[in-house]
């Protein structure tokens, strides 16, 4: 066997300044929007017959670290690609979602002391956006599907938006990794 250039633990010290994740909150398919709205005919040129596609644009996602909880805020736009009289139109719905996460909801659960001592910053990851919608009828219908107080001619749409929320709490640390150099000839090219 070839002789190692560097043997554990002397030398070969990798000295890193890295963010170490102390606790994580993972919640799948959180309902961040559940709404019903009327799209006036005059806005899109008629009645909506189909919702062809839905996209989401995150305007900003941030959080506030409180004394004993974390509050997350997600500002987003939902963009609906709809068909009106055989033509495509865009509708944008803007909303803000906020949620308080208790310390015992993190994995591992944190005590107030650990939270104060060990956590410096946090990061929100949002992924796997999914949508559920339905066209409830005409806003002006006698059963008033959108529960409008003043009558408007339009299409009533129900929209629900879900997303996986991952919140990572961490702190910058010195991380020292000891290793050995691979002998020549064994290195991955």
């Amino acid at each position: 066997m070839a002789e190692l250039k560097c043997e554990f633990p002397e030398g070969c010290m990798l000295d890193l300044w890295a963010k170490v994740i102390k606790a994580k909150y993972v919640e799948r398919q959180v309902k961040v929007l559940d709404t019903m709205f009327c799209v006036p005919d005059e806005q899109v040129g008629g009645k909506i017959s189909t919702v062809d596609d839905i996209k989401v644009k995150v305007i900003q996602a941030y959080e506030e670290l409180g004394m004993n909880k974390v509050r997350i805020f997600i500002e987003f736009e939902v963009i609906l690609l709809v068909i009106v009289n055989n033509e495509y139109q865009l509708i944008t719905v803007t909303d803000k979602y906020d949620q308080a996460i208790e310390l015992d909801e993190f994995d591992p659960p944190l005590t107030v002391e650990e939270f104060r001592e060990e956590i410096e910053d946090s990061e929100i990851v949002l992924r796997n956006w999914t949508f559920d919608f339905d066209i409830k009828g005409n806003c002006e219908d006698h059963h008033n599907p959108c529960h409008l107080t003043s009558p408007v001619r339009g299409t009533c749409i129900g929209l629900r938006v879900f997303v996986d929320i991952i919140d990572k709490l961490g702190k910058m640390h010195d991380v020292i990794v000891y290793g050995e150099l691979e002998p020549e000839g064994f290195q991955v090219k």
């Binding site: 055989n86 033509e87 495509y88």
Partner: peptide, 14 residues
């Protein structure tokens, strides 16, 4: 023609 209308309006709004 209806398909053309759909195609054009889709591209236009997106």
């Amino acid at each position: 023609n209806s398909e053309n209308i759909k195609n054009i309006s889709r591209f236009m709004v997106l």
